[in-house]
Computed example of a mutant assay.
Amino acid sequence: MDRTVSIFQLKMEDRTSFILLSSLLLLTCGTSGQDNAGCVRPILDAKIELATNQTHFSPGVPITLSCKQGYTPVSGPRRIVCTVDGTWTNTRYMCIPKRCPYPDPPAHGELYYEDTVYLSTINYTCDEGYTLNGSSTAVCQANATWSTPAPECKAVSCGLAPIPQFGLIIYDKTVRGGKTYFGTGGTYRCLPPYALFGNPRAECTISGTWTRTPECRVVTCPPPDNIEKGYMSNEDRRDFDFMETVKYGCNDNYALDGNMEIVCQQDGNWSEMPSCKASCPVEIQRAKIEYNGEKILISDLKIKVILHKEIISVYCKDTVRNCTYPIPTQCIDGVLKLPECFEELSEFEYNLNSTSHPSEIQQC
């Protein structure tokens, strides 16, 4: 009869230690149907191989064990012998996978792997702005070496940025040797009187090319008009170039509303023109007011006029609570509206000690 001997498989899962794989044999021995007893070919662990294709063995015949490609032997003995009772002698012969050297990540890149034993795989990637020069994968071979050397991660370069006619570029950082790299940026400008059309910002992209280059075109504006109640710094009746400016001012008792300077814009039009607004007479005879952050008697206001958009504050009285509160009012193009609650002092009250004025009474 056939008899089966099971030899157990051992395994240690530790990256820093041997992975002990079973080389224990499942041997089937017995009669071969012939008169003489012997052994049948042993059933081996998948990692172990025999040096012969023979299927039946006589007592006393030895077999030499070896490891398949990519595996290395551990323990022993390496040879088993067919015994007279039809069994094979015992062995602890085991084969473990060979291990490749631990890989280092490429500069400016990363690698991913689960193990470094035979048939393990490494995957390489590069950081943004770098391209892989070499193979992106490597496999641990039977001779314990990686199938390909580690690749390099090379920076993406763009060369110098293209310059538009009549323009220039100012790089964000110093550029040397005629080379620029991914992420390098700059700002385009046009030489006067040319105007820039397109994106003024430039950047070396991940594809190794620069973003679209803008154009520099001639732009002019027609002669500007003067403003009512005012004057201008340049009355030449000519076309003005892009970015040229003209300044405005107002006649006495008028204030400029808007920017004092207009500029010839990219679309061939002037920026918004200012206007001259009338000042406001302060028709108060007897009171203390707030003006430019100070409390003053109205008689101390040298010219009883404030300019457009200037503000004064007058004081109203809360007779119920016996307290006062300031109310601001603003000059708008010659009109200064006083609040209804405001009451001028009598001549006697005004000339009396100023500490009794509403502005000096406890504030509400």
Rank of each mutant, 00 (worst) to 15 (best):
E272G: 02
E272L: 07
P281G: 07
A255N: 04
M273V: 07
Q285C: 00
C280S: 06
I284G: 02
C280V: 07
V263G: 01
M273E: 08
C264I: 04
P274F: 01
Q265Y: 00
C280H: 12
G258D: 12
C276Q: 09
Q265K: 10
N259T: 11
G293M: 12
Q266S: 06
L256N: 07
P281W: 02
K277G: 00
N292W: 06
E272M: 04
G258W: 14
I289A: 08
N292D: 12
G268D: 12
E290F: 01
Q266V: 13
G258P: 11
N292A: 14
N269I: 02
K295L: 10
C276A: 10
K277P: 06
S275P: 03
G293F: 09
N259E: 15
Y291R: 09
P274K: 08
W270R: 01
C264Y: 07
L256G: 12
K295M: 10
Y254L: 01
A278F: 01
Y291E: 04
K288R: 15
P274T: 08
D257V: 13
S271N: 02
I284K: 05
Y291G: 05
Q285V: 05
I284T: 05
M260I: 02
K295D: 10
V263F: 04
E290A: 11
L256R: 10
E294P: 01
R286T: 04
M273D: 01
A278K: 12
N269M: 06
I284F: 05
V263Y: 05
M273K: 14
D257Q: 15
V282N: 03
I289F: 07
A287W: 02
I289R: 06
E283Y: 08
C264N: 06
A278E: 12
M260P: 06
Q285D: 15
I284W: 00
E294M: 07
I289P: 05
C280L: 04
K277N: 09
K277M: 10
W270A: 00
S271G: 07
Y291Q: 03
Y291V: 05
V282M: 09
R286N: 12
P281H: 09
S279V: 02
L256Y: 11
R286K: 14
M260V: 03
Y291F: 15
I289G: 06
L256W: 09
G293I: 11
A287N: 13
V282Q: 05
N269S: 11
V282L: 11
M260Y: 11
V282C: 06
A287S: 13
E272R: 05
G293D: 14
V263T: 15
G258K: 14
E261M: 15
I289D: 01
C264G: 01
D257K: 13
A278Q: 13
K288N: 07
V282H: 09
